[in-house]
Simulated scan of single mutants.
Amino acid sequence: MKNRSILWWGRFDKNYSRNRIIRQSLKRLNYQLIDFMPLVSEFGFAEAVLRNIKKTDFVWVPCFRQRDIASAHKWCIKHNIKLIIDPLISSWDKRVNEKSNVFSQSYANKIKQRESDLFNKADIIISDTSKHSELFIKDLLVKKNKVRTVFVGAEESIFMPQKTIHKPNNSIEILFYGSFISLQGTQVIVNAAKKMASRSNIKWTLLGNGPDLLICKKLAEASPHIFFEGTVDYLKLPERIHKADILLGIFGDSKKASNVIPNKVYQALACGKTVITRSSMAYPTNIRNAKNGIIFIDPNNPEALKNAVQRLVNNPKSIQISNVSARAIYDKNFSQSIIINQLQKVFSTVS
């Protein structure tokens, strides 16, 4: 039997982790992937016609490519095939609820309506968490039977447990990596670290670059136990994760922050590293009260972060126990086999 084909439509980044994992999973399900990256998103339909792009079984518009949905939909109508979109985020949610942009209510409503119109062109809309599913349904008015959840996960071929690296003098490193956007709450991390200034064996490292980096560096002045590092290449990230003892997720208190499970949480859990992050209903119900592996605290609360770190570092053996739980949580809830199963369910509804 001939493998079914999917046309990946849009000006997408093949190397972005969400796309890499989805593509790997689809290939394991024996789908043939064909890429179409139009020169200009708005004219994608015309270019596809001129280039005589062959009909496939499905069209997939990957994450962040809302601009490509309209032209992909037009092509799907022409060829009578199903359109699947995997936006990962709502651009309306990001622009209006996360960023500090101040829009008039009428303009914010226009942004929302446009995205709602785009999402409703699809036959299936993929979300990465149940909270994003709720947003798509309640705020963007997508029909419930069109929405399916597929977790982001981590690339298990590179994010995997390793033997613990022995460190001298009982030193412990707390690591955050990210893009220093407000959702991540990096100032919460710096303020928590400052509360533990007397613990000279504890090193806090913030890795990456972004809008709040300079603010964090200013906050961290005269704090010799707080360090900053530049962005690490994606393929070198697992090695950097394993050099640390405890990983940090996100701590922002925005509605957007409450809807996501960030890449760094998946990746740390896959590496078998304990993660501290803000509490959120986006996580599966069976791990929301976890005491090991992943530790949840209230958002925007430096004191709570300090206390969570302190409990772990006061009993170093508890970190090793917690690390085992971290990978177990990943395997049970977010592994690639689970993602593949979720994708199978998606295609069973449109086949």
Results as ranks from 00 to 15, higher is better:
Asn109Val: 03
Lys121Cys: 06
Gln105Met: 12
Asp128Ile: 07
Cys76Phe: 06
Ile81Leu: 07
Lys99Asp: 11
Phe119Ile: 10
Lys74Gln: 14
Ser100Gly: 11
Asn97Ile: 08
Lys94Met: 13
Leu83Trp: 03
His132Gln: 15
Lys78Gly: 04
Lys74Arg: 15
Lys112His: 07
Phe103Lys: 11
Val96Gly: 05
Ser106Asn: 13
Ile84Tyr: 01
Ser130Ile: 14
Pro87Leu: 05
Lys110Phe: 13
Leu83Val: 08
Ile124Pro: 01
Trp75Ile: 05
Lys112Val: 04
Asp117Pro: 00
Phe103Pro: 07
Ile125Met: 08
Asp86Pro: 02
Ser116Gln: 11
Lys131Tyr: 04
Asp117Ala: 10
Phe136Glu: 00
Gln105Ile: 12
Leu118Glu: 09
Ser100Lys: 15
Trp75His: 04
Asp117Val: 08
Ser133Asn: 10
Ile77Leu: 14
Ile77Phe: 05
Ile89Asn: 06
Ile126Val: 14
Val102Gln: 13
Ala108Trp: 03
Lys78Ile: 05
Ala108Tyr: 03
Asp117Arg: 09
Ser127Trp: 00
Ser116Ile: 04
His79Val: 04
Asn101Pro: 05
Lys82Pro: 01
Glu134Ile: 10
Asp93Thr: 03
Lys82Ser: 11
Ser106Val: 11
Phe103Arg: 10
Asn97Lys: 15
Ile81Phe: 03
Glu134Val: 09
Ser116Trp: 02
Leu83Ile: 09
Asp117Cys: 06
Ile126Asn: 01
Ile89Pro: 01
Glu134Thr: 11
Tyr107Pro: 02
Ile84His: 00
Lys112Gln: 13
Asn80Ala: 12
Ile81Tyr: 02
Phe103Gly: 10
Asn109Ile: 06
Ser104Lys: 12
Lys78Met: 15
Lys78Glu: 14
Asp128Val: 08
Phe136Asn: 00
Lys110His: 09
Lys110Trp: 09
Lys110Glu: 13
Ile111Trp: 06
Ser91Tyr: 07
Phe103Val: 11
Glu115Asp: 09
Asn120Gln: 13
Ile85Phe: 04
Leu88Ser: 08
His79Ala: 05
Lys78Phe: 14
Gln113Cys: 07
Ile124Ser: 07
Lys82Ile: 05
Ser116Cys: 12
Phe119Asp: 02
Arg114His: 15
Trp92Thr: 02
Ala108Ile: 06
Ser127Ala: 15
Pro87Lys: 02
Lys110Asp: 10
Arg95Leu: 15
Ile126Arg: 01
Trp75Val: 04
Asn109Arg: 13
Val102Trp: 07
Leu83Ala: 06
Val96Arg: 05
Ser104Arg: 10
Thr129Pro: 01
Leu88Val: 14
Val96Ser: 05
Lys82Leu: 05
Trp92Leu: 02
Ala122Arg: 00
Lys112Phe: 03
Cys76Trp: 02
Val102Gly: 03
Trp75Leu: 13
Asp128Lys: 02
Asp93Gly: 04
Asn109Pro: 02
Leu135Gly: 00
Ile111Ala: 03
Asp93Trp: 03
Phe103Asn: 11
Glu98Leu: 15
Lys110Ser: 13
Ser116Ala: 11
Ile77Ala: 08
Gln113Lys: 15
Ile124Asp: 02
Ile84Thr: 02
Lys112Arg: 15
Cys76Pro: 03
Leu118Met: 13
Lys99Met: 13
Trp92Arg: 00
Ser91Leu: 13
Asp93Tyr: 08
